[in-house]
């Protein structure tokens, strides 16, 4: 079996949003609809430190679909549009999506984005990989782990374009993969572990 996953080194993350823009570009994500974005932990705005001068912290948390083993979004999807695929990814069948947004409410990570209107692309002609499906008004979308790339043995675009190599992509079912080793050997952080969603995305420093 294959269980594709992503490990993110928070020490190496400089909050630059290259992952957000690489993803937007590759997947033809519309304006204002990022599939992954980097939050400044503890702050409502980007790049504001937390604490009192000079005792401060500024930690970045890149956040996209966690590709959970036990996805809350999938459980509530009434049509089966959201599914866990054979590679271990959480995917959306856009043709089956009826836009009920139950998944959006269920996802504890708030990483799903909905096409409230026809998506706006700038430039209008769009961008990214030619095989990425077009999404229209009324359809939910989110990180696919660059399905079109990972199906072909390539790394997701966020991993390729991270300037500090903070992202490690691999197969958790392969015990010899770097990502399996990281999960075994490092202290890892799982977001909202208590929710029981069992994310396949994990963080380390």
């Amino acid at each position: 079996m294959t269980k594709l996953a992503l490990a993110i080194n928070q020490k190496r993350c400089i909050g630059c949003q290259a992952c957000a823009e690489a993803c937007k570009m590759e997947n033809n994500v519309g304006m204002g609809m990022l599939w992954t974005r980097t939050l400044t932990e503890g702050s409502d705005v980007m790049d504001a430190a937390v604490g009192e001068f000079p005792n401060l912290r500024m930690d970045y948390l890149p956040l996209g679909c966690q590709h959970c083993e036990n996805p809350a979004c999938q459980k509530v999807c009434p049509t089966g549009a959201t599914y866990k695929d054979e590679m271990g990814r959480v995917e959306i069948d856009y043709d089956k999506c009826i836009g009920c947004r139950m998944c959006m409410a269920a996802c504890p990570y708030n990483v799903r984005v909905f096409n409230w209107t026809e998506p706006v692309h700038d430039p209008e002609t769009g961008y990214g990989d030619a095989t990425v499906p077009v999404r229209h008004k009324g359809v939910m979308e989110k990180c696919t782990l660059c399905k079109q790339r990972t199906d072909n043995g390539q790394k997701p675009m966020c991993v390729v374009c991270c300037p500090t190599h903070a992202r490690v992509f691999g197969d958790l079912d392969d015990p010899n993969s770097e990502i399996s080793r990281l999960k075994r050997e490092r202290t890892v952080r799982i977001l909202l572990e208590e929710m029981g969603t069992e994310p396949q995305v994990f963080y380390f420093v």
Binding site: M31, G32, L34, R37, L39, T40, E41, G42, S43, D44, V45, M46, L61, L63, Y109, N110, L191, L192
Partner: peptide, 14 residues
């Protein structure tokens, strides 16, 4: 994790 509660103010289109 207050940073996750809302989308970033700065992410809205200016």
């Amino acid at each position: 994790m207050s940073g996750m509660k809302s989308s970033h103010a700065s992410l809205t289109r200016r």
